[in-house]
């Protein structure tokens, strides 16, 4: 199929790529732009491993077409850390062992950041429901939820 030229912005950088119109944004990130941090666990919007921020909204990038990225701005896990240090969530996840295999981690970090950007004082159940679309098969979620709650607390205290 004829490819389409897409201009977009990813993690603050201007990016252009050619895509088959059947390809998802996730395919484009991983295969055309070389950003393999977003993962495909299902391809059907059920696991959240492909979570990205799309013009300010949390999306499953496996449910967005690559061509839809035209003129948009996208944030992925590769853009989460600052130049000097990790994002507080990333740091806390390492410190509190909130990952085992780490495959769900990029998606969970993106989704958790989207929550804390909106609400830095969530209840535990708010965190659990917000992350209900992100499957983790390794951890039983316990340490993930605690790491998000702790980060929120740190953010509130430094604010």
């Amino acid at each position: 199929m004829t490819k389409i030229h897409v201009k977009t912005n990813i993690n603050g950088d201007k990016v252009e790529f050619l895509t088959d119109p059947r390809e998802t944004l996730l395919d484009c990130l991983r295969n055309h732009i070389g950003l393999t941090g977003s993962k495909e666990g299902c391809g059907t919007g059920d696991c959240g491993a492909c979570s990205c921020i799309f013009d300010g909204n949390l999306v499953s990038s496996c449910l967005v077409l690559g061509v839809e990225a035209e003129g948009k701005s996208i944030e992925t896990i590769e853009g989460m850390a600052g130049e000097k240090e990790l994002h507080p969530l990333q740091k806390k996840f390492i410190e509190m062992a909130a990952l085992q295999c780490g495959f769900c981690t990029p998606g969970i970090l993106i989704a958790a950041k989207a929550l804390l950007d909106r609400n830095n004082d969530p209840t535990e159940s708010e965190v659990r429901y917000w992350l209900a679309g992100n499957l983790c098969r390794c951890t039983g979620y316990d340490k993930i939820i605690k790491a998000v709650m702790e980060t929120a607390k740190d953010i509130r205290e430094t604010a």
């Binding site: 977003s38 993962k39 992925t76 990790l86 390492i94 981690t105």
Partner: peptide, 18 residues
Amino acid sequence: NRPDGYDKVTGRAKYGAD
């Protein structure tokens, strides 16, 4: 902290399809 922690929270770690 685990030694592969940085790789795994930044999306750098290379899995099977990467």
